[in-house]
Nucleic acid binder design. Structure first.
Length: 274
DNA sequence: ACAATATCCTGCGAGC
DNA sequence: TGCTCGCAGGATATTG
């Protein structure tokens, strides 16, 4: 599941190779992945544009293109964006291939077909669904403790559900929500407003440190995730609770348990998450 | 405005 | 062996 650390790693690996390259040709094999505009217009508009920069907002990748265009890509669950030689075997579920000016290719594959691509003029970027309602970026300097605490105190939903809400905070998915709550020693079913100031402060801090550590380890590869060069991450070796059912808590030795929060699994330690 | 739930999609493993 | 069922979860639409 590409969450903030995985998308950030894809961004960094791709930036090394793609900036300055021109898109020579594009093939679309699964039309539903192109959200905006329609496929023919997408092809016409993107050909001969140069990639000027790559940015990330939450789990969205934003490619700056020449002539003031932006291409936005969301990998959702199983999306992969890999740069490499034309001679690489074409994987099943390859939906879009971009041919680049250096003779290599950028390929978008997505087993579950949840991923989406938008191409818009710069001034219509906020028209990309989800982008304009995105909450604060947790690793930016302007991630604000006062606002975080104030928002928490007003919400009756369970804390795990709130961490997954992209309009509350951008970039956290199921893996890091569980890991962040474990490190903060907070039970996933606690109501957000019930957290003490100390608990909220721990949460605010662990959101940032967990995501930073995961980026340092190039993300978590649980099933599908690979970076922009097809390499797996290593943070799966450092998980404390996510998918660790039946294992012992590294902190207190209790058995890790699982509950449903909404329709998602939440893994936690019943011994030390209160 | 907020909270909770159904929906999309494919592959995989469990159970019979 | 081969079938069905449940599970995995990001974001959005819908319902209460």
């Amino acid at each position: 599941m590409p969450e903030l650390p995985e998308v950030e790693t894809v961004k960094r690996t791709l930036a090394k190779y793609l900036i300055g390259q021109k898109i020579i040709q594009v093939s679309v094999y699964q039309e539903t992945v192109i959200k905006i505009p329609d496929v023919n217009e997408f092809k016409n508009e993107i050909i001969n544009k140069t990639i000027t920069d790559i940015d990330r907002r939450g789990k969205y990748l934003i490619f700056g293109l020449s002539e003031g265009y932006k291409m936005v890509i969301h990998l959702r669950m199983t999306g992969q964006l890999v740069y490499g030689e034309k001679t690489m075997p074409v994987k099943k579920h390859t939906h879009v291939i971009f041919e680049l000016s250096d003779g290599r290719e950028l390929r978008f594959t997505d087993q579950r077909r949840f991923g989406r691509i938008w191409l818009v003029p710069e001034d219509e970027l906020l028209g990309v669904s989800g982008l304009c309602t995105l909450g604060p970026e947790p690793l930016r300097d302007d991630f604000c403790w006062e606002a975080f605490q104030s928002q928490l105190s007003k919400r009756q939903t369970r804390i795990k559900a709130l961490l997954l809400d992209q309009s509350f905070i951008a970039g956290i998915g199921n893996i890091y929500a569980d890991e962040i709550l474990y490190r903060s020693q907070i039970h996933p079913e606690r109501k957000a407003a019930s957290l003490s100031k100390d608990e909220a402060a721990r949460l605010f801090s662990e959101v940032q440190s967990t995501l930073k550590e995961a980026i340092a380890h190039r993300g978590t590869t649980f099933s599908d995730y690979v970076d922009g060069r097809g390499e797996k991450g290593t943070y799966q070796n450092y998980l404390n609770v996510y998918q660790q059912l039946g294992k012992k808590c590294p902190r207190c030795g209790a058995d890790i348990e699982r509950v449903k929060v909404g329709s998602r699994s939440a893994y936690y330690c019943p011994g030390c998450q209160k």
